[in-house]
């Protein structure tokens, strides 16, 4: 009941955001948060629910990004370009999954890191195809049903709709039998085989689903910036996405969204005051892994509870007036 009410309030706040958020700059930041939240939702399917930590997901985000920009530059219509990009994305994701699912745990992490680097290398060095360091410009944002997305507000609503679809699809998946099977393969893969489950195929399907949302986020990111460069596929970008997932709390539905908000806001604030975003990114990473491995949201709650208990349990000197 309370959760339904909270969800309704959050939804209303998001829907009315252009009314209460002052100016296009902040609305654009909110759009960015939603785009990265979609990315993090996708990555969390693997990290949180399959127990497979990928350090190459920026590659999938970037492939969709590049594919749509390249197709539009090659003269394809926006719809064809978007569908073509998704096709390229799914093919890449399938190959990515087949290679990396030969392993789990640390091996999986290493292979995804290596494949992510290959994709980055392609973007950076295969200049004929990708323009190298110069990247590719996207001439214009698409106009779904004739509605222009050129301005902040319509683009925000477009992103919000995609975000809600992503969130709903992940929520449905997690509560489904297949979602429960996936969590089973995370906790006891061998037992799951003995119970009659095809562990590899379950992981493969989860990987495709994860890749799909990561790529859709990449697509939106390309529309948002109207530009794509190799930086999008870098290890730093993969690490950022992973930070969103684990900082918010991996394996929870809303954690990655909170993580995305946290990272995007910090990145924007940090870049306004200090230059050293990467240092901060690394420091937060280390701090979270060391002190709050369950994520910032559940972790803060735990630390807060402990503090509260201590305050109540031990009557402070000032308390006995």
């Amino acid at each position: 009941m309370i959760r339904a009410a909270a969800a309704a309030v959050a939804l209303c706040a998001l829907a009315a955001a252009p009314l209460w958020i002052p100016g296009g700059y902040y609305l654009n930041i909110l759009s960015q948060i939603l785009i990265y939240a979609i990315f993090a939702l996708g990555l969390n399917l693997l990290v949180g629910y399959a127990g497979l930590v990928s350090l190459g997901h920026a590659g999938l985000f970037g492939v969709a990004c590049y594919a749509v920009a390249w197709l539009v530059a090659a003269g394809a219509g926006q719809l064809v370009a978007a569908l073509g990009a998704l096709a390229v994305l799914l093919a890449t994701t399938a190959a990515f999954a087949v290679l990396s699912l030969r392993s789990a745990g640390i091996g999986f992490l290493m292979i995804t890191l290596a494949i992510g680097q290959i994709l980055w290398g392609m973007a950076y060095r295969w200049i004929d195809l990708t323009g190298g360091d110069n990247g590719i410009n996207l001439a214009a944002r698409p106009q779904p049903f004739g509605i222009s997305l050129a301005f902040a507000t319509p683009f925000y609503y477009f992103t919000l709709i995609v975000f809600l679809v992503a969130l709903a699809s992940v929520a449905v998946f997690i509560a489904s039998p297949l979602g429960a099977s996936l969590k089973g393969t995370r906790d006891q893969p061998r037992r799951m085989s003995a119970l009659g489950y095809n562990v590899w195929l379950i992981r493969f399907l989860a990987f495709l689903f994860s890749g799909l949302w990561s790529g859709v986020a990449g697509l939106l990111f390309c529309y948002y910036n109207q530009f794509v460069s190799p930086n999008v596929l870098s290890l730093g970008s993969s690490a950022e996405a992973l930070l969103m997932v684990i900082s918010g709390g991996s394996g929870t539905l809303l954690g990655p969204i909170a993580g995305a908000a946290l990272v995007v806001v910090m990145k924007n604030v940090a870049s306004a005051y200090i230059e050293r975003w990467n240092f901060l990114l690394g420091a937060i990473f280390v701090a979270i892994v060391l002190f709050m491995p369950e994520g910032l949201v559940p972790g803060s709650a735990r630390l807060g509870r402990r503090l509260w208990l201590r305050l109540r349990g031990v009557p402070a000197a000032g308390g006995a007036r």
Binding site: V172, F173, A175, S176, P177, L178, G179, A180, S181, G184, M192, L195, G196, Y197, L205, F209
Partner: peptide
């Protein structure tokens, strides 16, 4: 209950469904 349900689900074609609610 979830442990035993997972065991049962392992033999059911339902285990592939990403849409229905397990509960």
């Amino acid at each position: 209950l979830h442990n035993v349900t997972l065991s049962l689900l392992g033999l059911s074609p339902l285990r592939w469904s990403p849409f229905r609610r397990l509960d």
